[in-house]
Amino acid sequence: MNPYLRFDLDFILRHVPDFGPAILMTLGVFFTSLVAAFVGGVLLAIARQIRGPLCWAATVYIELMRNTPSLLHLFFVFFGLPLIGIVWSPFVCGVVALSAQHAAFLAEIIRGAIQMLSRQQREAGWALGLLPGKVMRYIILPQACRNSIPAVGNQSVLLLHDTALVSAIGIVEIMLTARSLAERSAASFEMFVTIGVIYLALSSVLSLSTGFLERYYAFER
């Protein structure tokens, strides 16, 4: 044990109020990205159901996104896009980069859920005289979305963790608040223990609410 240092609890307690806006910012980035990623994921999953060039494009996009790190996506959007004339605020950059990547993960999840549904669902829809688009919209997608709740919940925890990366492009959320507080004090370790606890609490709330949603939308058998 280093005799010169002790765990500085007072420091943490003094700076707890600083984390209020930071948590709000993290949640803002998180929810915006989650909604955008979910919409993108559903569209990509539908594109993969249709034979043709659109399916190929969606597959290539998904594999590219899944096999490259989020941090590089953030740098690409934040440093790369301005060079071709697209200048966005850090918040928009963060949301675009995170949701572009997580849309690919969610697309795979939703595609899996669509494939798990039995063929009869689709055929029953056709037999009722529904067009393929309406079968997708009213029969396949609602069931696929409900069945994918646990996996989407898991993925959203990973998205929450990825929001810590947007500190690298200067969005003042939990991570950047902790880093700047740690920089002007000797209590770095204390600071990161604090935000570790914050992230753990946020992830726990997220997985608890996923479990709740899962039970709420469960089949009544």
């Binding site: 925890v157 929450l160 963790h161 990825d162 810590a164 990366l165 500190s167 991570m175 902790a178 880093r179 740690a182 770095s188 370790f189 990161f192 223990v193 935000i195 570790g196 992230y199 753990l200 992830s203 726990s204």
Partner: peptide, 11 residues
């Protein structure tokens, strides 16, 4: 699993 990797690196 509940703490982001980035935070764990700093920890």
């Amino acid at each position: 699993r509940g703490i982001p990797i980035l935070v764990q690196i700093f920890l």
